[in-house]
Simulated scan of single mutants.
Amino acid sequence: MIASQEQQDDIKSTVHAARTSGAIALVGVAPAVLGLGYPWYLATLHDFAAERHVWSALLALALTLAVPASAFASIYILGRQLTVTPGRIALQRLAHLTFASPPLYVILGVFLYLMKINGADARVWMVMWLMILCGTLLVLVTESKVGAAARSVRLNTAPVRVAHGVASITIIVLFLFPHLGNHAVAILGVDTHRAVMLVLRHLYRAGLIEPALIALFLFQIVSGLVLIAPKIGSTRQGLLDVLQTASGAYLVIFIASHMNAVFVLARYFGTDTDYAWATGLPTGLLGDAWNVRLIPHYGLGVWLVLAHIACGLRTVMLSHNVPSQRANAICWAAIAAGTLWSTVIIAGMMGARI
């Protein structure tokens, strides 16, 4: 029996939908599969750098950065889709987690070090990542059963957004900008950095200010997760919207990792958290097999915190009826300034001096 035109159209529509779903699944899963080898890309970077193979080291660095870069592309593509399904949300969550691979690998390494499990970072990473991938694939496989029942829920995040913004301003004024400014002057020399650091510590390590800052950072982690959750299910997201969400996901883990390293790892062992500690002197970030993971961790972290602030400023401007074209232009200008600032910081951390 020859199928009617309507039946043929239905078949074509079903095949097209299946191919589209398959392509979307590939876009979402591919960065995470690439992320399985993240520890080995870093190890290769360290080995080539030690052997003075500059171009090979740069290629290994590019492969390392390809993990968060491909994840960001995945977040953008998934965020442009017109429909929201449980599988699509699972893929977006996976992409956001993959984007945060640098701080995730750092915090994993610190936890394993504290548990006195040495030399197992890469193996634990692979097992953990395979479990995450399996969980995501299970959601995709069962999507047809639960997809029809899924409903998007609109949350009123306005109060959380305001509180998150107020906490951000407080952190920026009392700690973040002075701290990043301190790191920027390190390009003039370690002694210059230390002199500025000792002055600034009287501010952000004061009796009442330091506990308040810790509480604010913890609040930013929790409130950030609350704000990210509904955006992961959003559709038709622009590039700056995606950058705000992706940078927020990165910073949630980055802040947790940094606080764990400072307040648990360093202070527990009585280590001064100065510039020498942060940059792994005297071997440096590139000269130590463990410290090499801090290069993408810090490099992206500094740039993303400044980009996140710029995107937050854009959100505030849009909420106050500033024309989107002007708000976007100001945001991009702030991102450009943040790029210059973060470049100076990372260059200093890698040993550059003027």
Rank of each mutant, 00 (worst) to 15 (best):
I89K: 14
Y250S: 10
I187K: 07
L318R: 12
G299A: 09
I75L: 15
A148P: 02
G22Y: 04
L318S: 03
G233T: 11
L227Q: 08
L218T: 02
D121G: 08
L227C: 06
D191P: 01
Y268M: 12
I77A: 15
V322E: 09
A23H: 05
P211N: 12
W40V: 03
C134G: 12
F111T: 04
L286R: 07
H96Y: 11
P68G: 05
A30I: 09
T136V: 15
I132C: 11
F217I: 11
L218A: 11
P230A: 06
A149M: 12
A66D: 07
M350P: 00
L59R: 01
L227P: 06
W341Y: 13
I11S: 02
V153N: 00
I117F: 12
A3F: 15
Q220Y: 08
V262S: 10
L45A: 12
V162C: 04
Q325C: 11
I172F: 15
A215F: 08
L180W: 12
H96I: 15
Q237I: 04
D288W: 11
S257I: 10
W290L: 12
L285Q: 00
A32F: 03
D274W: 03
Y250W: 14
C331N: 14
T343H: 03
R314A: 06
L176R: 01
S234G: 10
K116C: 05
Q81W: 08
T279Q: 02
T83I: 12
G79S: 07
F263G: 00
L36Q: 06
L114E: 12
L340Y: 11
Q7G: 00
W129N: 10
S101V: 12
T273P: 02
T315H: 14
A100L: 07
C311A: 11
A122D: 09
T136W: 01
F269E: 14
N260C: 11
T245A: 14
K145R: 15
V110Y: 06
A43G: 05
L130F: 14
A307V: 13
I330T: 13
I172V: 15
G165C: 07
G348D: 08
N118R: 13
E6M: 05
G135Y: 06
A206N: 02
V166G: 06
Q8H: 11
Q325K: 09
V292D: 08
D47P: 00
L137I: 13
V127K: 01
T157F: 02
S319W: 08
M317K: 05
S13I: 00
I117Y: 13
S324W: 09
A150R: 06
F72N: 07
